[in-house]
């Protein structure tokens, strides 16, 4: 019960240093920033619980049919999966750096960090595209169209419940991919605002929130990678 955050009457603020970005219903910039951040964390846990549904489906089917999951997961490209992991981790670093730079008023460095993040996200999606098409070529589709054929996929046709693995694989990586695309849109928008000099060490809420979102996308992938590719 000790979190008494909102009570400061903020007597220091008067008309002349009332910042332009402070909305009328907040007392201080501090309060506005804290609110936005808590709101973002709450949004992030809704994202986590959204993915939780798929983690549950994965856990249940893996526990029921471990052999099928094993046979199916070795057909995924471990090398590309690992490369993609490193790509996303690097993009997390660059977005963290962009916050670091904007806090030090180095707008230009911050901007280029965001652009680097954007590029890495693009690389991730391109690799994902090649992974998907390699699967589609051999009839590995989610759901009813599942019809494996060719090379290493042939034996899968005779193992029950591998279709479930690939359904879960496609749904999980698909929804994750949608989050990457959305993230790219947001990062592009924020990068343009950084470029136009909207943010600085006194006001960088949007950059920080974008970073939080992007790290969450990264964390989801940190779990998807071993679950789908490795074990």
């Amino acid at each position: 019960m000790a979190t008494d955050t909102a009570t400061a009457p903020a007597t220091t603020e008067t008309d002349h240093d009332h910042p332009a970005h402070l909305e009328h219903h907040f007392v201080s910039t501090e309060q506005q920033f804290d609110s936005a951040k808590l709101g973002m964390w709450l949004f992030l846990i809704t994202e986590i619980l959204l993915f939780a549904g798929m983690f549950v489906a994965y856990a249940v089917y893996r526990q029921w049919h471990p052999e099928a999951f094993l046979e199916a997961s070795v057909t995924l490209d471990q090398f590309l999966g690992t490369v993609n992991t490193i790509v996303l981790l690097t993009s997390s670093l660059t977005v963290a750096l962009s916050i670091h730079y904007i806090q030090k008023d180095e707008q230009s460095k911050s901007f280029w960090s965001l652009i680097a993040t954007l590029a890495l996200a693009g690389v991730f999606l391109v690799i994902k595209y090649f992974e998907y098409t390699a699967k589609f070529e051999h009839g590995i589709y989610p759901g009813a169209l599942f019809d494996p054929h060719g090379a290493k996929y042939e034996p899968l046709a005779n193992i029950p419940y591998v279709a479930q693995f690939f359904s879960i694989y496609f749904v999980m990586t698909g929804i994750h991919g949608v989050h990457v695309v959305v993230g790219m849109g947001i990062i592009a928008w924020i990068a343009s605002r950084v470029y136009r000099g909207h943010f600085g060490s006194d006001y960088f809420t949007h950059v920080e929130l974008t970073g939080l979102y992007w790290h969450l996308v990264d964390i989801i992938w940190i779990f998807l990678y071993p679950m789908l590719y490795l074990v």
């Binding site: 955050t5 951040k37 808590l38």
Partner: peptide, 18 residues
């Protein structure tokens, strides 16, 4: 702020419960 940590922890705990 610890309240953000608490928020995140609650989210993770409920994934565990699920």
């Amino acid at each position: 702020n610890p309240v953000n940590t608490l928020t995140f922890a609650v989210g993770v705990i409920f994934v565990g419960i699920f």
